[in-house]
Nucleic acid binder design. Structure first.
Length: 113
DNA sequence: CCCGTGACAACAT
DNA sequence: CATGTTGCCACGG
């Protein structure tokens, strides 16, 4: 494991299968730094290989996405995820009281290593 | 070369 | 239960 944490992040994010999503903390934990979720975001921000690394499959711990910093525009990520079959929870989605903004249903689509 | 900031998450108050 | 603050590492100025 001589690679940097950053490189490990790319490797892990790259392993996320379509139709599933992973949280920053999860990726960070898999990379060996459970407290480094922040670096995961920074690593993806670096995005050395656009189109190769599915950054859109990485979301917040509560299922929300990065506001404003999405790879093409806010909302673009949701289209990509829905296109892969990821379940989204709308504000009217029962079972999730208080879900205002669109969030990924981690209960059903969170990636398990 | 040193300081501050940054796609987050968990703990403390 | 909600809000505020700290921790972590890397990169930019």
């Amino acid at each position: 494991m001589g690679q940097t944490f950053n490189t490990q992040v790319y490797d892990i994010v790259r392993r996320i299968p379509a139709g599933c999503v992973a949280t920053y903390g999860q990726v960070a934990a898999l990379a060996g730094r459970p407290r480094n979720a922040r670096m995961v975001g920074y690593a993806l921000h670096s995005n050395p290989e656009p189109g190769v690394i599915p950054c859109h499959r990485v979301v917040f711990r509560d299922g929300s996405l990065a506001p404003g910093f999405a790879f093409g525009g806010p909302g673009r990520q949701r289209v990509l995820l829905e296109s892969e079959g990821v379940a989204f929870t709308e504000a009217s989605q029962q079972g999730n009281a208080g879900a205002d903004g669109p969030r990924v249903d981690l209960s059903r689509c969170q990636w398990q290593a």
